[in-house]
Nucleic acid binder design. Sequence first.
DNA 1: CTTTTATTTGAACGTGTGTTCAGTTAACGG
DNA 2: CCGTTAACTGAACACACGTTCAAATAAAAG
Lengths: 199, 199
Amino acid sequence: MARTSGSTASETGPKVAQAALRLFAQYGYAAVSMRQIAQDVGVQAGALYNYVPDKQTLLFGLLRDHMTDLLAARKLCIQSDDPGQALLTFVTFHIDFHLARPEAVFLSYMELRNLTAENFAVIEGLRKSYERELEAIIAAGCDQGYFDVRDAKIAAFAVIGMLKELQTWYRAEGRLDAKEIHALYWEMIAKMVGMARSA
Amino acid sequence: MARTSGSTASETGPKVAQAALRLFAQYGYAAVSMRQIAQDVGVQAGALYNYVPDKQTLLFGLLRDHMTDLLAARKLCIQSDDPGQALLTFVTFHIDFHLARPEAVFLSYMELRNLTAENFAVIEGLRKSYERELEAIIAAGCDQGYFDVRDAKIAAFAVIGMLKELQTWYRAEGRLDAKEIHALYWEMIAKMVGMARSA
DNA sequence: CTTTTATTTGAACGTGTGTTCAGTTAACGG
DNA sequence: CCGTTAACTGAACACACGTTCAAATAAAAG
């Protein structure tokens, strides 16, 4: 047997990425075999290599695309000169973007160590450039007297940590919807950075 | 060849656990082979099975011991009826305990999904009982009017998240020592829970 | 010194791994 | 309808995996 009826690269290609994303997120990169991915796609393992040079590059592609999407979406946010507004925008954007793609987010946190050194450096660079935006907002808010934190870098880490943890407990069918989560987190974060009651 | 000179179970046993902890934390459970662990111990792979029934149980044992240690150490904390003091104690304890054993902490966050369903349930139960302590402290502080948070459960998650993130950036040789980290995190957390300026 | 016990080796088992590729069939272009 | 290209199969490669176990040696006990 050979080419299967109805098969086109434009359909199989995305299926490969989706299956890999799903399986890597669920079981971990090292625990998922190319044959499992192939089965999920509905194809033999050999066929995957029409779409991906190797397993490592498959993982890297998923992480890089996720980070690229994140930064691209972030650029579309309306940026504000007011630090309070800028922080609110960042937090709201972060929550929406991340809650919408839990698997990619999970993968990006969990599988960094399975990247080669070179690939890791690329992803890490993208991640840092995102997190530095938050740090810059907090630092600016301090300089301008809107916020009150002793260490902007640590405060940024704290906010990132809070938001990361959100990923671990949020369920779409859960007690809180996105709107309530926005409100709760914004309340906590605004207090934490000592935001003056204006904005 | 067979038994090597100087070999005793009381030395090799702990070595196995240490090597597994180190390697699992660094490369991930699925990516580390029993032969790698054996090499780190300085022994052939077969010898590991004098100390561990299988790889899964080895992982489970590491995680369970970590959680057991955590809960035991926590019990030794002096508990306070004052919510502010109780929260401060919790935060300080958490930071000290976790910064002292980064590998076990990392493993406990990363390798939960590589546990069998039964083993996972055990670890998850231990973890929840720890995190519920924090939630109870925050809830009590709210009830008694010391704290001001809209949702104690979410606030507890937020604090846990902040502290988890600390693990990812802290380096012993870094800019901040434990004392400064205590102060910075306590400041942020006290503000976040809307703590009245007394305690 | 002899016997017993503790500890490890080294080979083997069956299975699974990522990856390659010649061969085969489906879809497409002329 | 034919030739070309696109897509996939299925087998194979060399190697690594977790685990078992008889045999062998070291340490401990008597």
